[in-house]
């Protein structure tokens, strides 16, 4: 295992060293590329003046707020559709009509309705996060062991308790998988909205660095955004394994 992870590092390190040497040897002057050493220096600089941390906070705040709203809505509908076949069939056309709208297409609508800032970004992130949660939680509720539902019926649990005591605990591992997918989407959508239009957060930071012809800073932002995406993914995978272990695997398509 250790030998394999060492092998995995060979390629990225070789690329970095080759790039550094090439940039030094040719005295690279470019608006789009910078040697790795300068990227690292720019990253430290952005940390030192706290600009990148403030941008990270803005992006993560929008992403998580949108994620929370989107997950709640998706979960509510997903559970409702999972429990009631009638409701699911009646809403099918409506859901299938709204779902394929690319989240980013809502950007201009959110822009004229809410203006620049956190709110429009949160709305777009929330829209994007609803669908994976809705679809996977609906499937999770449907696949609950039927005997559990029989017990709920035999105990005459009222609907609210049935959801809270039987359905959510039984479907939770797969709901968490959906949450993990949505969290990745939330970060992607937040950064995309910022790059496209919203003067806020990491996406705006990287655009600004590009416009200021600071390739080192731009690539530093790129590396940092990648690191956050990677860290978020690892964190959620670890949380999933810790909390649910093998139980979550059944719902994990990846």
């Amino acid at each position: 295992m250790r030998a394999n992870s060492a092998k995995a590092l060979v390629l990225p390190l070789a690329v970095l060293v080759a790039f550094e040497v090439w940039a030094r040897a040719t005295h690279l002057q470019s608006d789009s590329l910078a040697p790795p050493s300068e990227i690292v220096m720019a990253l430290f600089g952005a940390f030192a003046d706290l600009s990148i941390l403030a941008a990270t906070r803005d992006t993560l705040f929008s992403a998580f707020a949108g994620l929370a709203i989107g997950t709640t809505i998706g979960l509510a509908f997903g559970i409702a559709f999972g429990i009631s076949d009638t409701l699911d069939r009646l809403m099918e056309v409506t859901v299938e009509a709204i779902r394929p709208i690319p989240s980013i297409a809502l950007l201009p609508i959110a822009l004229i309705a809410l203006g620049f800032g956190y709110r429009m970004e949160i709305v777009i992130v929330a829209f994007a996060c609803v669908w994976p949660v809705l679809i996977l939680s609906r499937a999770a509720v449907r696949s609950i062991e039927p005997r559990l539902m029989e017990i709920a019926r035999a105990l005459r649990l009222p609907p609210a308790q049935r959801v809270w005591k039987i359905i959510i605990p039984a479907a939770l591992p797969r709901i968490f998988v959906a949450f993990r997918l949505s969290a990745g989407i939330a970060l992607i959508v937040a950064v995309t909205v910022e790059i496209a239009i919203n003067p806020l957060g990491l996406g705006a930071g990287i655009m600004l660095a590009q416009q200021a012809l600071r390739p080192d800073l731009m690539l530093a932002y790129l590396v940092w955004i990648g690191a956050i995406g990677y860290a978020l993914n690892i964190l959620l995978v670890v949380a999933q394994n810790r909390l649910f272990g093998r139980a979550a695997l059944s719902g994990d398509g990846a």
């Binding site: 608006d31 990745g184 970060l187 990491l202 690539l219 790129l222 955004i225 995406g229 990677y230």
Partner: peptide
């Protein structure tokens, strides 16, 4: 696999610069 979680839109500024 390491690059996969990178929000791909972050490549846009780099592409614009190039």
């Amino acid at each position: 696999e390491f690059l996969r979680p990178l929000p791909v839109s972050a490549i846009i500024p780099v592409a614009i610069a190039m």
